[in-house]
Nucleic acid binder design. Sequence first.
DNA 1: TTGTAAGCGTTATCAA
DNA 2: TTGATAACGCTTACAA
Lengths: 324, 324
Amino acid sequence: MVAALAGVSRATVSRVVNGSTSVAPELVHSVEQAVRTLNYVPNRAARTLASRRTYTITLLVPESTSKVFADPFFATVVEGVAKYLNSTDYMLNMVTSSEANPGKTQRYLMGGNVDGVLVVSHHSGDHSWEHLSDALPIVFAGRPLLNAADSYYVEVDNEEGALAAVERLISTGRQNIATIAGPQDMPPGVDRLAGWRGGLHQAGLSDALVEYGDFTVASGAAAMQRLLGRGKPLDGVFAANDQMAAGAHSVILKHGLRIPEDIALVGFDDDQFATGVEPALTTVHHPIAELGEKMARMLVELIEGRAAERVCRLPTSLVVRESA
Amino acid sequence: MVAALAGVSRATVSRVVNGSTSVAPELVHSVEQAVRTLNYVPNRAARTLASRRTYTITLLVPESTSKVFADPFFATVVEGVAKYLNSTDYMLNMVTSSEANPGKTQRYLMGGNVDGVLVVSHHSGDHSWEHLSDALPIVFAGRPLLNAADSYYVEVDNEEGALAAVERLISTGRQNIATIAGPQDMPPGVDRLAGWRGGLHQAGLSDALVEYGDFTVASGAAAMQRLLGRGKPLDGVFAANDQMAAGAHSVILKHGLRIPEDIALVGFDDDQFATGVEPALTTVHHPIAELGEKMARMLVELIEGRAAERVCRLPTSLVVRESA
DNA sequence: TTGTAAGCGTTATCAA
DNA sequence: TTGATAACGCTTACAA
């Protein structure tokens, strides 16, 4: 360690580099100067080997690589994660749990090569990684289907968001409010439906108008079609995400009905689908980048043994545009 | 190293693990067995420290993190990279060159923490990383603006693709073929325009009908508007990407013209915009995932000192749908 | 507060 | 072909 040539022992250099408090200010100064002139960069591998800390966090990408990457949700989460990690010493590394090599990932993660894991398997019930959590700190994006009670995770407050959507609909005078719900085997699907129900009950309105979709545009269109086909009075719709709302949107217009005059429409997520239609969607903002940031922050706290809440629920906000 | 407890020296274990040829078959066998029963996983840090090889490849993400991640091109490249790397011992790590911490990335990369770098700054002329290449193997996605001559990169054959597009237009009887070209400060913009020109010249047709866009839907629409405004005969359009083609598409229909009967339209990229319009676009397929795969393969070859072509140009193929 | 010295788990050199 | 043994560059008791 060449920096020692600037006056002190390697131990002291190490202390300075790692910000130990117990070092004489003058020594700190001269070491820092030496570091600068020698352009010294600590060797990560050596540091890891000695300290048994890797300063590496793995982003675990589930099986269906192609689908996940195409998903803007994923991209935005990663963006948030990267942003936070940039302010720390941690490096981010991605591992896709290859179908081909099931054990490889496992071994890598358990092999002490990583300080913690971030799991972004947003849909796909595959939470085969939960068992890792007793070997390694793990934070999930979204509430896991199983073992939610002992998992660390960050999610948006889906129920609150849906409630706000319904309240908007009610406050603009709607009385017959339907929902296009998401799959009931996914927490967001369940929670958004519950929020819708809650809002209606609060106002003493009926919750009979429910149709289900799978979060795709096509399924939203089909659900809207069924809703209209019921022949019941209908003047407001809450779709559990913007994609389904977009599908409903086109069906409503195709039926010669006006948005929002005849049917008001509120979506959820505030993504490109919300602004990609005309009139643009009033929707619930899903703070995805913040979710990623929070996940990373939580994981780092966990790793460093600082207090960390087991679950973090991010608040939503209603974005009012033209559709409701 | 506990595995040594199964008969031999640590040196031999190392040889077996690393597949050295000069080891007695019986020893190989017993070591492998020991590895299995002890569930031994080599320690990356120790290996790196001793061998000065990190088995880590960095994916360098340019400044504007949010834009890049939103770009499906980026996501797909990463997918390809990850896929190839999964078949190797290399790990992928992402570093976003934070505006906040300009030197940090630099030091990390130069600090011997990485075996090679993949740069995916698809647009954004910022190739401030080219100087790294004399310290570290680097492979770029797309031909770099500067120093293309001494850079390693993978690109799609833009000129060939554009040529095929024009040939399609000609073969379906079009005589007055325009182009909506991309920015001329980006290699794909330049090359696709050149391909269009080449096709027309080959056929003895005029190359007068050129308008420029910036690869966005809106710019494509505006360019189409200008093309139509010229009042010249026009029965075919080649747009330099599908987004601009989609913009042109809506303008054509809005003018009461039919696609492809009145104006045939060919795009480039074969992305979601090609299938998102009705009639769907005939377009040039851009093999993005393959590009990522090839980049990774090239980098690994470079790192391991095996022969590697300086530039790899991926072939395109025409996807015939309804618009031409 | 500072220095000494013992690892950390591999690979690599050199004899045997 | 195999085995000692010395690095690799850092952290961290433990002493001073």
